[in-house]
Each structure stands twice: as structure tokens, then as C-alpha cells.
């Protein structure tokens, strides 16, 4: 019983990180209309930048700031240089996905050449542990979970409550109409990439903090679970992505840890298949499919 609680605890931590990343991914799709499969690689670059800060003796908060900044700036640059010009040419969903994969390959392999194949770790894991209902957390894990929740809350509020948030969603849905109604779409799309890129960068640093060894390809493999969480949540729906991440994070951790490690992927697969079969619109019902029917 206590062992299960332990694994639930691990699951909560990995789910929180996963949620941070998946919400960022979903939100990026929501506000930019680009399903960005280079997301994992941008996470990696942010984590590497934070690693540099770490080596220079920077504290965890500084690493997070730098990671978030790098994620934001890199995302905005990629959009300005590549995504946006292609979108303006009228490239549709399929083409844009291919482009993000291509960009991901380029960014990922450049970082591979620059930083090598070795793995590294931040060495910030604090030794102080906290116990709660049979679960054990380290200080840095708790900080990560807190950060994940805070970042999601703040960004969600920005997105829903503020003028720029509404402008972002309007621009993503119909750029022509948005421009016609006086929205400065170029600026808005920059902001959208900066904000969602920040979340991506933070997720990268958080993920790197929580695993023992981090390598250039870790972000890539993390993308699998991010995508699974996003699909389970209903793509483009941040709340759904959050729930999807929690579900997948906790279930895979408990099954992988408590039952048998080789069942980790299978359990993720079963969750995914179950949702595809019975709740194809994701955890949060309705909205997306409806939108398709009208269009």
C-alpha cells in the first residue's frame, strides 16, 4: 500500500512536469494554429541553456528564468524565420506539421553536434525530503510542481481574461478576419510564441531537473508522452491536456513502478487507445468536434 503511495507520489511529480509541457504544447497550438512537433527540441535547448547557468553557479530560479527566456526567444525566432512565412504562403495543416518536424530535426541535431551525446545532470536535487500521505517528495520536486501549477494558472488567466489573450485566439482562428478587425496580427503572433515558448522552456528545465541524467534526445522522447497527453486531453485544449497529463503521468508511474516497468508504454498505449475509441474529442467533451462540423 505504502509502495503504491510512493509511486503515486512519483507520478504526481512526473505528471506535473508533463502537464506543464503538455499545456504549453496545447496552448501553442491554440494561439498559433501551429501543431509544433519541434517542441521537444526547443525544450532541450532551454534545458541546455539552464545547464550552462547551472555550471556557472546560478541558482535554480536563475536557471528557470534563463530557460524560459531561451524557450521564448527561440520559439519566436523560429516563428518569424520559418513558420510564419510558410503560413503566409497558405501552407495548410499537413505542410505545417512537416515543417515543424523538419525544424525539430535541424534544431535537435545541431544541438547534438554542439553538445554531444553525453548525458548531464544539474545536480540541484535537494536532499531535503518531505513526506505527505505516504508519498515522498524532494524540495526541488515540490518547487517544480508548484512552478508548474503557477505558470499554468498565470498563462491561462492571460489567455482568457486579457485583451491580448483574446486577440491571440482570434488571430489563430482566422488571421484575415483578425487583421480586418484591427488586430496587429504580427505583433500578436510574436507574443503568442513568446508566451507559449516560455512555458516550453520552463518545462524543459523542470524536466531536466527531475530526471537523474538528461541528454540531448531526452526532450524528443518526452514528446511522446506530451503528445499522448495532448491527444487524450483533446488537442488544442489546455485544460484537457492538463488532465491528460495527470492521468498518463500517474497511471504509467504506478503501473511501471509497482506492477512491472515493461508495462509503462503499454499502459500509456491502452489509455490512449481507450480515449481514441470512446472519447475521441478528449477528456473535455464536445467543443472541438462541434467546431469541425460547423466549418
Amino acid at each position: 500500500m505504502s509502495l503504491i503511495a510512493l509511486y503515486v507520489g512519483f507520478g504526481v511529480v512526473s505528471a506535473a512536469i508533463l502537464a506543464l509541457a503538455a499545456v504549453g504544447f496545447s496552448m501553442q497550438y491554440e494561439v498559433t494554429n501551429v501543431l509544433n512537433l519541434a517542441y521537444g527540441q526547443v525544450m532541450t535547448v532551454a534545458a541546455l541553456a539552464a545547464y550552462a547557468v547551472n555550471r556557472l553557479g546560478g541558482a535554480l530560479w536563475l536557471m528557470l528564468v534563463v530557460g524560459g527566456l531561451v524557450g521564448a526567444v527561440l520559439s519566436a525566432i523560429l516563428n518569424r524565420l520559418i513558420f510564419s512565412p510558410f503560413a503566409k504562403r497558405g501552407l495548410k495543416l499537413f505542410g505545417m506539421i512537416v515543417i515543424t518536424i523538419a525544424v525539430g530535426l535541424i534544431v535537435g541535431n545541431i544541438s547534438l553536434i554542439l553538445f554531444g551525446f553525453g548525458s548531464f545532470s544539474y545536480g540541484v536535487a535537494s536532499l531535503t525530503t518531505y513526506r505527505f500521505a505516504g508519498m515522498v517528495f524532494t524540495g526541488s520536486q515540490l518547487a517544480t510542481v508548484a512552478l508548474a501549477l503557477a505558470a499554468m494558472a498565470v498563462i491561462r488567466i492571460v489567455l482568457v481574461k486579457t485583451k491580448i489573450g483574446r486577440a491571440m485566439r482570434a488571430t489563430a482562428t482566422d488571421p484575415v478576419l483578425a487583421r480586418a478587425s484591427g488586430i496587429r496580427t504580427g505583433l500578436v503572433s510574436d507574443v503568442a510564441w513568446l508566451i507559449s515558448g516560455t512555458l516550453c522552456g520552463l518545462a524543459g528545465v523542470a524536466a531536466a531537473t527531475s530526471v537523474a541524467a538528461w541528454s540531448v534526445t531526452t526532450g524528443d522522447s518526452l514528446l511522446i508522452t506530451i503528445l499522448a497527453a495532448a491527444v487524450v486531453g483533446g488537442i488544442g485544449q489546455p485544460y484537457g491536456a492538463m488532465l491528460g497529463a495527470l492521468l498518463i503521468g500517474i497511471v504509467t508511474s504506478v503501473i511501471g513502478g509497482y506492477v512491472n516497468p515493461s508495462y509503462t508504454e503499454i499502459s500509456a498505449f491502452l489509455i490512449l487507445t481507450g480515449f481514441l475509441l470512446f472519447r475521441p474529442a478528449g477528456i473535455v467533451p464536445g467543443v472541438v468536434l462541434e467546431r469541425e462540423v460547423i466549418a
Partner: peptide, 20 residues
Amino acid sequence: RLRGDYQAVALLVVSLIGGG
């Protein structure tokens, strides 16, 4: 069941998990 964007991602995920 899925729209084009879901399909693309779901098929990618299925193959990745299959590998795992």
C-alpha cells in the same frame, strides 16, 4: 474518429509507443 491534426499526432504516438 479524429480530425486531420489528431490523426497525424495519434499515428505518430501509436508508432512511438509501439516502438517502446
